[in-house]
Design a protein around this nucleic acid. Structure first.
Lengths: 223, 223
DNA sequence: CCTGACTAGATGTCCTACATTTACACTGTA
DNA sequence: TACAGTGTAAATGTAGGACATCTAGTCAGG
């Protein structure tokens, strides 16, 4: 008779928790929606309710979920870091969040400008942004704009920056949808092209500076 | 007979969890140390072991605690965000962390330079840094240096930036203690004074630029 | 149409029991 | 004395049950 190897290296709660986190991040459990009850989850996963509770609780305390007694458990955020920021009310001031995001993006732009092919893919993203703007597609424009800025951070080659950026971006989602307008401020539009040019030219200083200026004009536009 | 008001608005687990978090942040439960067992905590707090477990588990999954079967539970970090970064192995690359921190600090320096009394207290911090350096007190020098940089971020008036900075700083603690040397690189020393001067002069551009340059020279010194 | 009571279902809390793993002390032997 | 092995206590991991408390929704009655 042969041994079946180590039974469980990773605790059940961790596995369950990871699975839940995956469902949240993938959107299977959409933000704002209610997830199945603890008992149901316990039955479906074949674990005890206590295990499910510990997993859910951990995600709740990090801000991803929000349990309501007598009602159910709802999804509050998809990102742990943004969850913490929301929980600690660090995301209350729009200015603070924008300034922080500007810092992240500027640092990313700086790094992207120092990489050989840091500009790859950003052209297309910026074109998509312009196209959506000209088409008057507000939702598409907002999405394309977000895609471009995230692309800049992605081009930095620094996953840590990307993670922080995503956290801040998620916090801003609501307010962006409320303040975005078509047509956009010409200064904002030009700043986008200037930023891309700076990265392409490999000018870190200009990239960072433009990145700050861009956010600044956005803040001006939004009042 | 008067009513005793709402029995419990905040769930027990949350209260317990907050208490634990406080003990960790305050250093009562030092990093690397072992905390009391679940049963003991349950008795001391007057709650069930299950409640204690849920609280501990949540702090474990966020990276603050690390339970070891048959042994006990140990403190791994004091900051939730840094806990997440460590857990997701986003802190593996020292360069990435330094670059991210540079971005935060540069943004903070920029903001500090735009505030009327953004420089308050930084003079003393920088003097303390120099004093420790001249005295050959390596530990004191490292602490004073960290205090100065944190002071810059604090001077930005943006609590969100400070939170992110603290998270990154905690991740760097170990490597800093290993790489720090006396005497320091003259370029690094000068950059500190230049940074302070830029903030005092209210020059955001120079403050951000110097902040980047400072980190760059630190990276050069560390190899 | 509105109000109120009732009910089903959800989370909150506690309890017990047992499995698994680890650190540590102890014991016997060389 | 030194060392290897055993044994034990204590810790976390997991399961299951029980009851309390709260909420949303239903439904009868005004």
């Amino acid at each position: 008779m042969s041994l079946s190897g180590p039974v469980r290296q990773v605790p059940l709660v961790l596995q369950v928790s990871e699975q839940f986190r995956g469902l949240i991040e993938s959107g299977t459990w959409p933000v704002g929606g209610r997830i199945p009850g603890e008992n149901q989850l316990a039955v479906e996963l074949g674990v005890s309710r206590g295990t499910v509770r510990e997993a859910l609780r951990s995600l709740s305390l990090t801000g991803l979920l929000e349990p309501r007694v007598g009602d159910g458990t709802y999804v509050r955020a998809t990102n742990e870091i943004s969850g913490v920021l929301v929980r600690d009310e660090l995301s209350a001031s729009l200015t603070h969040v924008l300034d922080a995001r500007a810092g992240i993006e500027a640092a990313a732009a700086r790094l992207a400008a120092q990489l050989p092919d840091g500009v790859a893919g950003l052209d297309a993203a910026l074109e998509a942004r312009s196209a959506a703007h000209e088409a008057g597609d507000l939702a598409g424009y907002v999405a394309a704009d977000a895609g471009f800025h995230r692309g800049v951070v992605e081009a930095s080659g620094n996953p840590l920056l990307l993670r922080l950026y995503d956290a801040l971006a998620e916090v801003l989602t609501d307010s962006i949808h409320q303040t975005a307008t078509i047509p956009e401020d010409p200064m904002v539009r030009d700043a986008h092209f200037t930023l891309l040019a700076a990265i392409r030219d490999g000018d870190p200083e200009a990239a960072a500076k433009t990145s700050y200026a861009l956010i600044e004009s956005v803040k001006q536009s939004a009042g």
